[in-house]
């Protein structure tokens, strides 16, 4: 049986001390699809994304109620192994953030943490990950060079390769193209089209055209509420909520 929804948020609330950043979010993320989270700045879309791999744990003063299930298991339950969770649910950040190491070491970092691989296995894994991120051909001759010598777009694809290296199931992308030029953005969007064959992708974007171009489903956030979610073409062609319509037609945000 094919599992339909790989991640489900139920009545999820998040507080930064006294401020409620997420209000009773119910959202299902279907497997092998791209789900886009859209909304104006400060609406909670990135915060929501970071609840899915518990990156909010790192911020002091965050309190979460409700639940997020991954393969049916609540990831906020007591005995969850957060490192194993983050290995399965990878993340790509807004600003390309390769480690100040070689290209090879960037990709090998994750696998070295979790498995004891031979040199040959590691080489193979690095190549597969870089191919998966459509970067192999550009860097195969300079794997030992610093990752910081790459262009911004290449750095971001390296970060995608790095995320793929630990064989995740889900990829969370937090505005992955907002710091990139249009040509690099196009490459990454193209790459995402390939990635969804093997991975479930959740992407935060403030670029509505991008959401419309690449995603299968869209969720619209506003001031901590999930206003509306559904198939992307429906959301963009006939939004049910007036606020969604106002946002996607560019009346605010």
């Amino acid at each position: 049986m094919i599992e339909m929804n790989i991640i489900c948020a139920k009545k999820l609330c998040l507080y930064y001390r006294d401020f409620q950043a997420l209000k009773d979010i119910d959202l299902d993320v279907p497997a092998r699809e791209i789900t886009a989270l859209i909304g104006p700045s400060g609406c909670g879309k990135s915060t929501f994304l970071r609840t899915l791999n518990r990156m909010n744990d790192l911020i002091q003063g965050v309190k979460i109620t409700g639940e997020v299930t991954y393969h049916g298991e609540n990831i906020y339950a007591g005995q969850v192994d957060v490192t194993a969770l983050r290995k399965s649910i990878g993340m790509v950040f807004q600003k390309p953030n390769p480690f100040p190491m070689s290209i090879y070491d960037n990709v090998a970092y994750g696998p070295k943490l979790h498995d004891n691989l031979s040199k040959a296995e590691l080489n193979d894994l690095v190549e597969r990950s870089l191919r998966g991120a459509a970067l192999w051909d550009e860097v195969k001759d300079r794997l030992k060079k610093s990752a910081l010598s790459l262009s911004g777009g290449q750095q971001q694809r390296l970060c995608i390769a790095r995320a793929l290296s630990v064989s995740p199931d889900v990829l969370l992308m937090d505005e992955p193209t907002s710091a990139l030029d249009p040509a690099s953005t196009m490459k990454i969007e193209e790459l995402m089209g390939h990635l969804k064959q093997d991975y479930t992708v959740v992407i935060v974007t403030h670029n509505m055209q991008q959401a419309a171009r690449i995603s299968d489903r869209t969720a619209f956030f506003l001031t901590g509420d999930l206003v509306e979610s559904g198939k992307t073409d429906e959301i963009f062609s006939m939004p049910k909520d007036k606020r969604t319509e106002d946002y996607i037609t560019g009346r605010f945000g």
């Binding site: 791999n53 990156m55 790192l58 490192t83 194993a84 969770l85 983050r86 290995k87 990878g90 993340m91 950040f93 953030n97 390769p98 480690f99 970092y109 994750g110 943490l113 979790h114 970060c159 790095r162 995320a163 290296s165 630990v166």
Partner: peptide, 9 residues
């Protein structure tokens, strides 16, 4: 953050 996101302790 990138390291934590890869499952590092």
């Amino acid at each position: 953050e990138a390291s934590f996101a890869l499952g590092a302790t």
